[in-house]
Design a protein around this nucleic acid. Sequence first.
DNA 1: GTCTATAATATGATAGAC
DNA 2: GTCTATCATATTATAGAC
Lengths: 188, 188
Amino acid sequence: MNGAATRARIIDAADQLFYRHGYEHTSFAVIADAVQISRGNFYHHFKSKDHILGAVIEARLAATRQLLDQWETEDADPAGRIKKFIHIVVANQVDIQNYGCPVGTLTAELAKLDHPSRAAATSLFTLYREWLRDQFALLGHADRADALAMHVLAFSQGIATLSNAFRDEELVQREVQQLCDWLSFLLP
Amino acid sequence: MNGAATRARIIDAADQLFYRHGYEHTSFAVIADAVQISRGNFYHHFKSKDHILGAVIEARLAATRQLLDQWETEDADPAGRIKKFIHIVVANQVDIQNYGCPVGTLTAELAKLDHPSRAAATSLFTLYREWLRDQFALLGHADRADALAMHVLAFSQGIATLSNAFRDEELVQREVQQLCDWLSFLLP
DNA sequence: GTCTATAATATGATAGAC
DNA sequence: GTCTATCATATTATAGAC
């Protein structure tokens, strides 16, 4: 087995397990089981569990950058791009109902653990924040672009949290619709 | 030492520790340390760690009911009561910055753990939901009172999550102001 | 009701053979 | 690069003395 490939499979499995069951609750044993390697083999690829978390966050950052870039090429209209972001909670509805938002729940857990990677997890939020800010600036709201970005971000987090708590699809549809209506009032 | 008093002190310490460091991360050892009892003594008062969690959620439910009742007597105006709810994120800003919303973060953790007390934790949300629904009904919006309640709930959760992630006080002030403005448009 | 002692297990991490 | 064997520790939980 190629070393880099094993490393990638560890990151991939840990990513999913951290999301579904939380960082702390995910032991080496279950990751090893998912990747089909022995527990001892881990330490050839990573120094510690914390280092796996670091690699997982790096991978999520890269995936998020790629997603945002893709949206830029797919949609020439900044408003359409923002709508794509707003609809994440609909597109990922099943996962969010079961496990919440991957970014929001990770930052919350790491804050409680006072974990060294807490800042890195927050930078996942920052990626969305700055991208949204750019879109609002393009729409002619440069003066309050960051505030609008945070507004959208906050709303998405709120919907995700309640979607996870109540598993209510109607709620998600309704709130997403309202946020899109709010957005349309900001268009030139 | 009185038995009931010890039990109450265990619940109180566990409540704080579960909130600050998460349920799973909080061991018997640290609770015992906080309450100043031995680990073995726990099992005279509770069958298991899960049972402590159950008691903590019960206590939180009782405290929440008391708070909502207090707001009813303090403020005769339903709009004023809703504003009191909205301002929770300001009143508890320091704790929320450090540990997030006690309800939102607990439900999220228990969902990931697929924990038996998950539904009980969600009922904390339901308490606020139904209380807010009643206030909106009193304001003459009985037809969409639940949707409005969930809107306020979602927003508060979003603000709490971002307040915890970014520790940004201005964001909280700004979003709370906006939500209050939105509320004033609903008044008769 | 509270304590000490201890069981049974799971955890993150290391050593060394292949 | 992967494995087995193992360490040191932490965890929930129990047994029994006081």
